[in-house]
């Protein structure tokens, strides 16, 4: 049996769901960002799968490469902010960072 489009889509939907679940439940800033990575990877997987099975060209592959680069850039900025948070607050728990008025 060969893997078809639906197999890829199932895996990516699972990845997306797990990423969203991590984002909604985790309170550790680093774990939250890992959830975001899962969401981005789910989208990349979709792009590559659709490029192979629907488009037949390379457009989707190119997008996936750009997404990987952007994910790295985003992680760099986000981790720098988490670092600043740790320096200022002494914690990476996002719930304990609430000085701004609700």
């Amino acid at each position: 049996m060969t893997a078809g489009l639906e197999h890829y889509l199932t895996v990516s939907a699972l990845l997306f769901g797990l990423g969203l679940y991590a984002v909604l439940t985790r309170r550790n800033a680093v774990a939250l960002l890992m959830g975001v990575e899962l969401i981005l990877n789910a989208a990349s997987l979709n792009f590559v799968a659709f490029a192979r099975f629907v488009d037949g060209g390379v457009d989707g592959h190119i997008v996936a490469i750009f997404v990987i680069v952007l994910a790295a850039a985003e992680a760099a900025v986000a981790l720098a902010i988490v670092l600043a948070m740790f320096r200022n607050f002494g914690t990476v728990n996002v719930d304990s960072v609430n000085r701004l008025k609700r």
Binding site: V23, L33, G35, V36, I39, I81, R99, L100
Partner: peptide, 29 residues
Amino acid sequence: RATEASLKYVIFGAVSSGVMLYGLSLLYG
């Protein structure tokens, strides 16, 4: 305050743009 602001911004931003990207991939499909 600024650190908290940027933390909230980056987390909400990263999640929502990731969710949007997933939507874009579906549209491409």
